[in-house]
Design a protein around this nucleic acid. Structure first.
Lengths: 338, 338
DNA sequence: CATTATGTCTGCATCGTTGCAGAGCCTTCA
DNA sequence: TGAAGGCTCTGCAACGATGCAGACATAATG
């Protein structure tokens, strides 16, 4: 089980532990002859440095953790890919953890026995834990918040402008001439901050167009999953005056909604136009392909990781609020044939 | 940066380091009075144990790594969720890493400076690295291979029966009366072992039905992505005698194929029936919904993690070959309206 | 030739924790 | 009263690596 240590190699090569360490790390001047002898011993024993020991000594692990509610939500998976890439550029690896949006599992991260201390920094996409709670119970580990939750000044935070994004999506539908635009995904309670921002944007777009919002067209959902999108859409279709367009707060809801529409025999976009948010890859290949508001995931990941690195190096000033760009991508679900 | 250590707490509470450690771990008898005094000091300083040090001392980290080619391939994301769950049941956390199917990044894992030594075990879904290479260059870390690659007896291996799965999918199409059944996803080269098994199953199904295989209907693809599925389908549609059914080697290829069919004005399943493999959630909500061969992902994850745990505890005999069940799930893409 | 500089190599201490053996002290019982 | 036992508590060593200061031998210098 336990592999050979520097001590074993040193004994075999008949040199000091310190010299072996120097050879392994390429430090300090070591004569060619000795270097060769040590190398032979290294190969012979197939020595692998014990990273835990190295970490202990150096006080850093070279690992950061990326905590998401659900890994099989494509948005998070796609973001995780970008985070891994961005971290690699800094010589860091990423550990991904999944909380299921479960407040208790999230709080585990903050508790006394948390594994968080094993990481040089944390990238959090919190769902249930409030920023308040984070600040109070937080460990000493540098943290960057990602995408979710309202900025409260305590932590660096990276996200797109959710209000503007929702406004753009809704405005697009209104510009197409749709007049009963529904919204799927509101979360009118404490931890639904992102959803509320999107609802605000939805209302702003109506206000700017001089149109009224029909509150019965705003359907809340507990999660942002396909099934709930489909259910919400079914409820909307059962209204006396069903909508002629839907703004869904993410692409999964939108895909669920499209599914419900298709099943009900409505044509998309002819009868009902649909917009989502996130630009997950799936939306490019769905039938119809999905119009969506695309946050720049690569930029989110890079800015978040860069900020975390600064924080780890202790070079970070007051926690920045970083806003990354987004853009509307029009596809078949609102524009008909491409 | 550096938090308080046992030493700091001990000094404050005016007891020995060892006693603080005992209080923290609930070990050994400590008088109520002392325990209380230490607790006060612990709270005062907000002590957090240094897990790195603990790990070094105990020789284990409580972490395993799950290495996948691409995290934003839904199958891997969904599997990752199950792996995280299974590991949690053993008190383990999972670090997820992504190799992009890049042989070099995979080999990094095996190299001398690999971070692999930081984990108690490795769950690998290798793509480029051959099992051969794994065995030669492997570290001392326990390994379980997952899903991909042919078993070669050197490592524990968990997968479904790929030949049977492909046979079932193809047989289903043939039973529907389809006579020109195409196959998308063959990989006739060293690292395409899984794909080759599926091709074998495809051929077996034809043989058992007494039908001939038309080799021009077998389209290889470098990866299992939507785009390549769409491209392959376009090529098939351009044939003088296009197929009336397609067996795709995974769901993403199938969804890409359906997309290409829809765009070309073909109806699914009326003109062309489509089957995939993996049972990703997306296939339940696509239009049409996707018939697929579903491996039992929960079971794969559990068996893999259980096996890895045995291996970590040193209780594992000769490397087992574990086959998990699969089943055909018929949806609209072959059966019409549900 | 003595002295200083240079280049190699080594031992000790240390990171923060836990395993182990044992030191005190108090109780119990012959 | 004294030995044995039980309960608390402590110090030392160790996990495997690296930082530091210095030892030693050799080369360069006046």
């Amino acid at each position: 089980m336990a592999g050979p240590t520097l001590r074993d190699v040193a004994k075999l090569a008949n040199v000091s532990i310190r010299t072996v360490s120097n050879v392994v790390n390429g430090y300090a001047p070591v004569s060619d002859e000795l270097r060769a002898r040590v190398q032979v011993a290294l190969d012979e024993l197939d020595y692998r440095p014990n990273l835990i020991a190295r970490n202990l000594k150096q006080g850093r692990t070279g690992m950061i953790a990326f905590v998401v509610p659900e890994l099989d939500v494509p948005y998070f998976a796609e973001l995780a890919r970008e985070v891994i890439k961005a971290a690699r550029a800094h010589g860091y690896v990423v550990m991904i953890d999944q909380t299921d949006g479960d407040g208790d599992k999230e709080r585990e991260l903050l508790g006394r026995d948390s594994r968080a201390t094993m990481f040089d920094g944390l990238l959090l996409s919190p769902l249930s834990v409030s920023a308040e709670e984070l600040r109070e119970r937080g460990n000493r580990v540098p943290i960057v918040l990602l995408g979710e939750h309202i900025y409260n000044g305590s932590f660096p935070h990276v996200a797109m402008d959710n209000v503007a994004a929702a406004r753009d999506a809704t405005a697009h539908l209104l510009q197409l001439g749709r007049r009963r635009v529904a919204a799927i995904g509101d979360q009118p309670y404490a931890t639904g901050e992102t959803a509320q921002l999107r609802t605000a944007g939805y209302r702003q777009a109506h206000a700017r167009a001089g149109l009224e919002v029909h509150d019965e067209l705003i359907v809340p959902t507990a999660h942002f999953h396909r099934r709930l999108g489909a259910e919400a859409m079914e409820r909307l279709l059962a209204l006396p005056e069903p909508p002629d367009a839907v703004f869904c707060y993410n692409d999964l809801l939108a895909l669920g909604a499209i599914r419900a529409l298709t099943r009900a025999g409505r044509r998309v976009p002819d009868d009902v136009a649909v917009v989502g948010v996130d630009d997950i890859e799936e939306g490019q290949y769905s039938t119809p392909s999905l119009t969506t508001v695309a946050p720049d995931k690569g930029e989110i990941a890079r800015r978040a990781v860069d900020t975390l690195m600064e924080s780890i190096r202790g070079e970070l000033g007051p926690p920045p609020e970083i806003v990354v760009p987004h853009r509307l991508i029009v596809r078949e679900s609102t524009a008909g044939e491409e």
